[in-house]
Design a protein around this nucleic acid. Structure first.
Lengths: 208, 208
DNA sequence: TAGATTGTTAATCGATTAACAATC
DNA sequence: TAGATTGTTAATCGATTAACAATC
């Protein structure tokens, strides 16, 4: 469908560019350039130039980039519709924190549903969304176009929940457990394990 | 001090190996090998062999590795003392969720303190730790050896809090805001921005 | 025109993978 | 010994950086 394949390394930097451009738009800045962006973000100048050329290709020599156009080019890489729809699985502390997360409101991610397996929680409303039973997820995803599922359940249930999401045709998973999830390679998984992150930091400061 | 410099790419995989070995130890498995590990974790065989050789170097031809010894070699990369001490800055939803995080208990990370700037929260006990005012952090870190600070404050306060941590001689920072923190390069920062993570997933599933 | 910025081509660097000799 | 595993050396791959020509 889209044949412009973006390297992993570039994908890692895209949110950085998006946040940066959003700030420029807030300040009503019209134009920018690879040089300026690279300085402000602490990246290599050529790296930024290559990234932007790949992402947009609308740079003008001597001029640079129109901020709004560039922002739109980034946006179209991320979604072809207005919102990316997400669901949260697991209405515990982490799930709750995510549902309330201060960044959602002005983002293009829309929380469609929260699911849990604890009957005491079903029916409760969290951040304007009613908690449903996990067994409803497949039915739910038939009527709602769910793009990403966020797994915030205890590790023992992680793979089982993951399988349910994949079975519901959800193609993106954000995994907050420390379990290495087993999925088809057409499903995109990213992991946020706090202990793993702390461990990596500990290694780096321990070996300075 | 430690001249065995570990490449970034290897550091990324170390928590994976640690979790894996922990499971083997639970199951009382004595020996393992690069081949087995690579299959179970879905990594390249040579990659695992090279990693383990760099990390430990105690592999025996035809035999493989002693699980417990290998686990200990990994441990000594992460810390030279019993615990890595952490503090949480920001006692909001995210901070609270992290303080209660189900993984802490059996990990080697010890939560020493929680700090906030909201006087209503000071003195409250959260997960057995009393919330203190952020202005106490420097004094606190003189008497406690704090290794890592976790920033869970609103974005507008992130850089200011970061500066306080660095000023308190804390060398590792886990940043839960979407702010690009400005630090000396002897400080190690890792970022966990949910929206950025979701964005990267959205790009990948949008460009399949 | 001169300067600033672009995009591209070539060189370098680092990480992964392949091939293979060494060994318990 | 033969097989399984190790560690190492060489080849490949991808990402970054350097050099430079093109252009508004």
């Amino acid at each position: 469908m889209c044949n412009k394949k973006i390297p992993k390394s570039v994908i890692e930097r895209i949110p950085l560019y998006m946040n940066y451009l959003d700030k420029l738009i807030e300040k009503d800045v019209q134009m920018t350039s690879s040089t300026i962006i690279s300085q402000d973000l602490g990246l290599g100048e050529v790296q930024v130039r290559k990234d932007l050329n790949l992402i947009s290709g609308n740079g003008k020599p001597k001029i640079g980039y129109y901020v709004k156009d560039l922002r739109q080019d980034l946006e179209s890489l991320v979604r072809k519709k207005e919102y990316t729809n997400i669901v949260i699985i697991g209405a515990g502390k982490i799930g709750e924190a995510l549902a309330n997360y201060y960044n959602y409101e002005d983002s293009k991610f829309k929380l469609l549903g929260i699911f849990d397996n604890d009957n005491h929680k079903i029916g409760k409303v969290m951040d304007g969304v009613t908690i449903e039973h996990i067994s409803n997820i497949k039915e739910f995803s038939k009527t709602h176009q769910v793009d990403i599922g966020i797994i915030c359940v205890p590790p023992t249930n992680a793979q089982e929940v993951c399988d349910k999401l994949v079975d519901s045709n959800i193609k993106g998973i954000l995994n907050f457990t420390n379990v290495v999830l087993n999925v088809d390679n057409n499903v995109c998984v990213r992991n946020v394990d706090i202990v793993s992150l702390l461990t990596k930091i500990a290694i780096e400061i321990n070996n300075e």
